Computed example of a mutant assay.
Amino acid sequence: MKSYWMVSDDTGSRLELRDVDTPQPGPGQVLVKMHAASLNRGEFIHGHGLHAAGSAKAAGMEGAGEIVQLGEGVTGWKAGDRVMGRCPGAFSQYALMDVRETMPVPARLTLEEAASIPLTFLVTHDLLVLQGQLQAGQWLLVNGVSSGVGVASLQMAKVLGAKVIGTSGSQAKLDQLQALGLDVGICTRAPDFHDAVMQATEGKGANLAVNTVGGTVFAESLRSLAFQGRMGIVGYVDGTLTAPIDLETLHAKRLVVFGVSNKLRTPAQRADGIAKFAAQILPAFADGRIQPMIDRAFEFDAMPQAKAHMESNQHTGKIVLRIG
């Protein structure tokens, strides 16, 4: 089968299209004929920690398709079922999914739309619900709201009944996101949004901030938080991995800063939130309250162009690779 691999060395990372054997499902796994997979920026950033120098592994982190074979002990699924999930090697014609990570594709969604859900929205669920404890009526601040996680955060927050402030360097993208319920859009890439956040929240600040950008906006996001506010760190596309911390503000406001990453989690830990996500959020996809936003879909052999499109920062929402 055809499979894209990420090859890393001391100078950078590159994609290679390889011919490899079709994997066979082990206990607790399903083999999926992949129809679509989504790009995630962190996988393509050299030094982001997802690929060690001198390593090579199948690329792709989430996708959707049809089950073709069940591993030992797998029940509740059958060949032909439409499924989506986080899975290593998603940019391949066939990939293995841990059955604990496998979710049914809602009937109203295409497999391309489904491919944009698993990793991004599970991360967002961790950010907003499991750790962020966002409640109805509270304010959410999203740095980089037009990114995949940013758009997912906006959509999920509206389902939860929260109000959303988003930052972006593009006014056109902010205007586009108003249709999804963006309450306040701040056109900036600089750490200069504190006053606008305070004005929107009547001087109280945001209850939760989602930082998809990195260290350049950390301090500004921290001081934009309300009493007992929380900030989740999910990426650092700015390449800035350090930031000053105002300990007095952190102390006085009883703030919480947390990270969202699966890098060091066990398979059981990664699967722990799946049932809660399926119960709380998946129905919103089934009834249309959340509609995946796909910026553009590329054919399988156009993977380099898809990667270049992501790196151009011109997209809003997810970029999808068609495989089937």
Rank of each mutant, 00 (worst) to 15 (best):
Q269C: 10
A209K: 00
R230G: 06
T249M: 03
I245S: 00
R270C: 14
G203P: 02
E202N: 07
G215M: 12
L282Y: 04
V234K: 01
F258R: 11
A279F: 03
P267K: 09
A278I: 08
S224L: 11
Y236P: 00
S261W: 10
D238T: 11
G203Q: 05
K276V: 11
L208S: 11
G203E: 07
T216R: 14
V257G: 03
L282H: 03
I245V: 15
S221N: 12
L222N: 00
Q280L: 14
L225T: 10
T201S: 02
L282N: 03
E220V: 05
T249C: 08
Q228M: 04
I245E: 01
G235K: 01
F227N: 04
F277P: 04
I274P: 02
V237H: 01
R254S: 04
D272F: 09
L208W: 08
V234L: 05
G203V: 08
T212F: 02
F218I: 09
G205P: 00
T216I: 10
A275F: 09
R270E: 08
R223Y: 11
G203K: 02
V213S: 11
V217C: 05
L208I: 08
V237A: 14
Q269W: 08
V197S: 11
V257C: 03
A278D: 09
M198T: 05
I233C: 13
K253W: 03
